[in-house]
């Protein structure tokens, strides 16, 4: 008889059961919506999207403080975590041919009659109406899958400046999109 071990065994079992329950709840609550969301950024690569969703939910599950958040905040965090995982994955794996050269803003909005293309026109217009400084940092970071420091080196400005311009640029972009009715 070993009380310490049996005590530990008991704890591990219940911790496993609790962990299993929590991750099942996470999948139930967020798995479907997150998968639909992630698929858009994996170019409909379902296998990749499923891996991203799994990794995202495991990170959430490991982070009990996050799980206390209200659902809107937790969802925003999950989207952000998933996006980062997709970006990291895209940087690692060989990119799809059409993603090698990100399009310039001027040729981005291709009218094909679909709702998304119309929305893309609105977003391209909003981007164009930002100041040059704001548009530039958005193009040189997110639209080209570059980090702050990579973009800073290319632009020849300090990383802190890129980060700050990105903040004001993204806020301005969001205001413009909200006025045009396409902000989320």
């Amino acid at each position: 008889m070993c009380p310490v071990l049996s005590h530990l065994d008991g704890r591990f079992e219940s911790a496993d059961a609790e962990a299993e329950h929590r991750i099942a709840v996470l999948y139930q609550e967020f798995g479907g919506p997150l998968l639909r969301h992630v698929r858009k950024s994996t170019g409909n690569d379902l296998q990749w999207a499923e891996d991203v969703v799994q990794e995202t939910l495991v990170r959430a599950w490991r982070n009990s403080a996050r799980l206390q958040w209200e659902p809107g905040l937790l969802w925003a965090w999950l989207l952000t975590v998933a996006r980062r995982i997709v970006i990291d994955g895209r940087r690692r794996k060989s990119v799809r041919p059409h993603e090698v050269e990100p399009p310039e803003v001027d040729m981005m909005a291709v009218p094909d009659g679909s709702e998304r293309a119309l929305s893309a026109i609105v977003v391209a217009d909003a981007l164009r109406s930002l100041s040059d400084e704001h548009r530039e940092v958005i193009e040189q970071t997110y639209l080209r899958d570059r980090t702050i420091s990579e973009a800073a080196a290319i632009l020849g400005i300090p990383p802190g400046t890129v980060k700050s311009r990105l903040y004001y640029g993204i806020r301005a972009l969001r205001e413009l999109l909200r006025d045009k009715g396409v902000a989320g």
Binding site: K40, S41, R83, M108, S119, A120, L127, G184
Partner: peptide, 12 residues
């Protein structure tokens, strides 16, 4: 907001 920007990345 990044989803809106994704529409630019994927539109062409």
């Amino acid at each position: 907001v990044p989803d809106r920007l994704d529409e630019l990345k994927q539109a062409p």
